[in-house]
Design a protein around this nucleic acid. Structure first.
Lengths: 108, 108
DNA sequence: CAATCGTATAAGCAATTGCTTATATATTTC
DNA sequence: GAAATATATAAGCAATTGCTTATACGATTG
């Protein structure tokens, strides 16, 4: 079960637009090296690195070292704390949420 | 359609544990006056008031004045930006699920 | 109208955040 | 081993955040 702290970390991580953009690129591109994420980013390499650390600490991405590159990809259950939290209040906004939750549960 | 700014506001609002607790109480209790939310809260009345304003600005709650009380309740579509954002990557997660399944089959 | 109740706003402050530049740490290549 | 590449960490700084106390506003009651 996801703790409140984990949920807080996920929400905080996604709340920053720059960091969320990094996460979205990782989602779209599947697996990206940090270099690739720096290119096309508005912020510096250290800034991207710091965002990647935040995302990793929040459990949203995982890294895989390959030579001097470090490739990032989405952590399978990274969004679980958020999905679970939404699901906890499902009855309040059931219809829209039902399909998404089902899909995500299957992918665990 | 929800803008990126709206999503950011929703995420930021929910990212703070105290403010999220206020929101959760409003969800559970249906309609609550600010006084009720202050009671049982760890923070002061102004702090609660500021959190309520943030939640309202993010579109997560609506208020209804009744005499000198102001009652808060969940805004029906307040979480839409978040739900929509998650749904936007639905296809990605579906593909991820498919790939995982494929990978597991191959490793048998 | 004066007192009171419910709530919001103002001002100030310590803590946190997101960024920068500069530097360190791995890893590979020459 | 030296240079180059990929990434992380350190230090510092301006902006933002979440809280506090004090005060203002709005509605009700006497």
């Amino acid at each position: 079960m996801a703790t409140a702290t984990q949920l807080t970390n996920v929400l905080k991580s996604l709340a920053d637009p720059t960091r969320r953009a990094v996460f979205e690129r990782i989602i779209r591109e599947g697996e990206v090296a940090a270099t690739g994420l720096v290119q096309g980013s508005k912020v510096s390499q250290p800034a991207v690195s710091q965002h990647l650390r935040a995302l990793r600490d929040a459990g949203l991405v995982v890294e895989r070292r390959e030579g001097r590159h470090i490739h990032y990809r989405v952590a399978p259950k990274g969004l679980s704390p958020l999905i679970d939290w939404l699901g906890h209040y499902e009855t309040f906004w059931a219809e829209r949420f039902a399909n998404l939750e089902k899909l995500l549960k299957e992918s665990e």
